[in-house]
């Protein structure tokens, strides 16, 4: 599904700003991978580079989806391939209603893939179902997108979009930050209910606690732009117990 080969990335227009320093990673169909790391390790950058964010530049390596390089594709084209990024800080967009925006997103995807657009009637039905599934306040989604939403409401709204867009590869960029336990559980339930043999997840997180609710198949520890350790779910518990200190020391030695 997703293959990352020796990926190096820097901040656009800033010299010596390399953040990702050679990442290799393979995520198979239906797998859930967690990427954990301390602050400044590059895990959020990785999530954003995968989606094609404008302010990073890939200087070396490649990213493949189903064997095809996506580095030349725009973010919207990556979305049409089935990629999705749940944002750490979803943008607040005054005047744009979630309904309207999600319909536009689905329409673009249908257009790009030569499929028929969903009728307004069918979309409304789908939207209402998903609102209930995610447990988002229906009044909220009548308002401007994310404007005045609490941290938890924004994350629920990301889950709503995930549910509606049904991506084949969902990347969650620290979706757990700023959430209380109830909201965390809702995010986790959203992800768990969407786990399927056809859908892969990359869950980027600083803390282990989200992984109490979402059991990953593989855990990677990212430190200073490199994956320093890969293991099973037990690796996350190790981090919870001992912190990132030992890995940071290893990264120093390897640098």
């Amino acid at each position: 599904m997703l293959e990352i080969k020796n990926l190096h990335a820097s901040v656009l227009d800033i010299d010596d700003s390399e953040i990702l320093k050679g990442i290799d990673l393979k995520v198979g169909k239906g797998e859930v991978h967690a990427i954990m790391g301390p602050n400044g390790s590059g895990k959020s950058t990785l999530a954003n580079v995968l989606m094609g964010r404008f302010d990073y530049v890939v200087t070396e390596g490649d990213v493949l989806i189903d064997g095809n390089s996506i580095l030349k594709l725009r973010p919207d084209q990556r979305a049409h391939l089935g990629m999705f990024l749940a944002f750490q800080y979803p943008a607040e967009i005054p005047g744009v209603r979630p309904w309207q925006f999600l319909k536009a997103a689905l329409d673009s995807k249908a257009d790009a893939n030569g499929e028929d657009k969903m009728s307004v009637r069918n979309f409304s039905k789908l939207f209402d179902e998903k609102i209930e599934a995610v447990g988002i306040n229906p009044n909220l989604v009548k308002r401007s997108l994310n404007e005045g939403f609490s941290g938890g409401e924004k994350k629920r709204n990301e889950m709503l979009q995930l549910e509606v867009l049904q991506p084949s590869l969902a990347i969650l960029d620290e979706t757990d930050s700023g959430l209380d336990v109830d909201a965390l559980r809702i995010v986790a339930e959203g992800v768990n209910s969407m786990r399927s043999p056809e859908r892969s997840f990359v869950v980027v997180t600083h803390y282990q606690r989200l992984l109490n609710y979402i059991t990953p198949d593989v855990v990677h520890i990212l430190v200073k732009g490199k994956i320093v350790k890969t293991g099973g779910p037990e690796l996350a518990l190790e981090v919870e117990k001992d912190g990132y200190k030992q890995y940071m020391a290893e990264a120093e030695v390897n640098a």
């Binding site: 964010r53 725009r74 979305a79 005054p94 925006f101 673009s108 995807k109």
Partner: peptide, 22 residues
């Protein structure tokens, strides 16, 4: 970028944002 990551192309995304501003 947020809108584009959801599959909306740049022109359409700009149109949505302008409309939202109005």
């Amino acid at each position: 970028f947020y809108l584009q990551s959801r599959g909306v192309d740049e022109e359409a995304a700009k149109a949505i944002l302008i409309r939202g501003f109005a």
